[in-house]
Design a protein around this nucleic acid. Structure first.
Length: 274
DNA sequence: AGTATAACCTGTCTGC
DNA sequence: TGCAGACAGGTTATAC
């Protein structure tokens, strides 16, 4: 579920609710969550520690621990954080971090795809494989142009976290619509002008979605339990059969890499029936 | 090298 | 109403 804007919304929500309180204890409800981490070591590291900082890298949410170490949590499809929840709000709790006075931080994840890694720092483990962050100072047109040098279809490149970190299936379609590029165009076939449009469209779409506090199709909630609002601004994702907001053509849906891709054939220059 | 498919899970929706 | 099958915001392994 969560892509970059949703994870960023989660980070901001947690920042406003979590101070630097001491972790009393942690409850691991779903053992599978710790598949990459030793249970004992996890308990020892967490107990008595403090959350110094909350941040994001790609789609990972990072809890920086005061006594060293970083918890890197990837929410995958249905992972989310809830603070001081009522039991009904966390039917699928996999981990509870009990912070005493500040309450309890719950990681809730219906489909149980989410992952947790206890890492020495923010440049190790799965984090070091992440590509360009579209909202970081490293995001420059020349860097984007470099990762686009591939025979892969552009939508696949946008979804490849090793190339660009944070874009998922909703925003990939929205970005390509905004940049008027066919999802099936090969990266290395993109003209200079299209690269420029794409370079602009990526952070614009993501930033607007952050301002609307993410997209809620069905599951996504911020740590207070609220839905996002960007679903009201989607222009092609989930709009199959509707009129294109730009050219009055018809939005279509097709499969690409086993996933739904939404596009306007006439303004994005998609020729064949996909 | 690039693409397709299945797998990991649980829930929801659609069509017969 | 029931039930099988498809599908869902993500990622990874394996097979052409």
């Amino acid at each position: 579920m969560p892509e970059l804007p949703e994870v960023e919304t989660m980070v901001r929500g947690l920042e406003s609710k979590i101070n630097e309180g001491e972790i009393e204890r942690v409850e691991v409800i779903d053992q599978k969550l710790l598949r990459n981490t030793d249970q004992r070591k996890f308990q020892q590291t967490m107990t008595g520690n403090k959350i110094r900082d909350i941040s994001r890298k790609g789609k990972y949410l990072l809890l920086d621990l005061k006594k060293g170490g970083v918890l890197a949590i990837h929410p995958r499809m249905t992972g989310r954080f809830v603070v001081n929840s009522y039991p009904a709000e966390t039917d699928y709790a996999r981990l509870k971090i009990i912070l005493g006075d500040e309450g309890t931080l719950v990681f809730d994840d219906m489909r149980r795809f989410g992952t947790l890694d206890l890492l020495p720092d923010e440049d190790s483990g799965p984090l070091k494989k992440l590509g360009l962050d579209p909202l970081s100072p490293d995001y420059k047109e020349e860097n984007l142009a470099r990762v686009l040098q591939s025979r892969s279809e552009i939508k696949r490149i946008l979804l490849d976290q090793k190339k660009i970190a944070g874009i998922g299936n909703i925003y990939a379609s929205e970005i390509l619509f905004r940049a008027t590029i066919s999802p099936w165009k090969k990266g290395s076939d993109l003209e200079k002008g299209k690269i420029k449009k794409l370079f602009k469209a990526i952070p614009e779409v993501l930033q607007e979605a952050i301002e609307k506090e993410g997209t809620t199709i069905s599951d996504f909630r911020n740590p207070e339990g609220d839905s996002g609002n960007f679903q009201l601004s989607l222009r092609v994702y989930g709009k199959e059969g509707e009129e294109c907001p730009r050219c009055s053509g018809e939005v279509q849906k097709a499969k690409q890499g086993g996933r739904g891709t939404y596009f306007c054939p006439s303004c994005q220059g998609v020729k064949e029936e996909k």
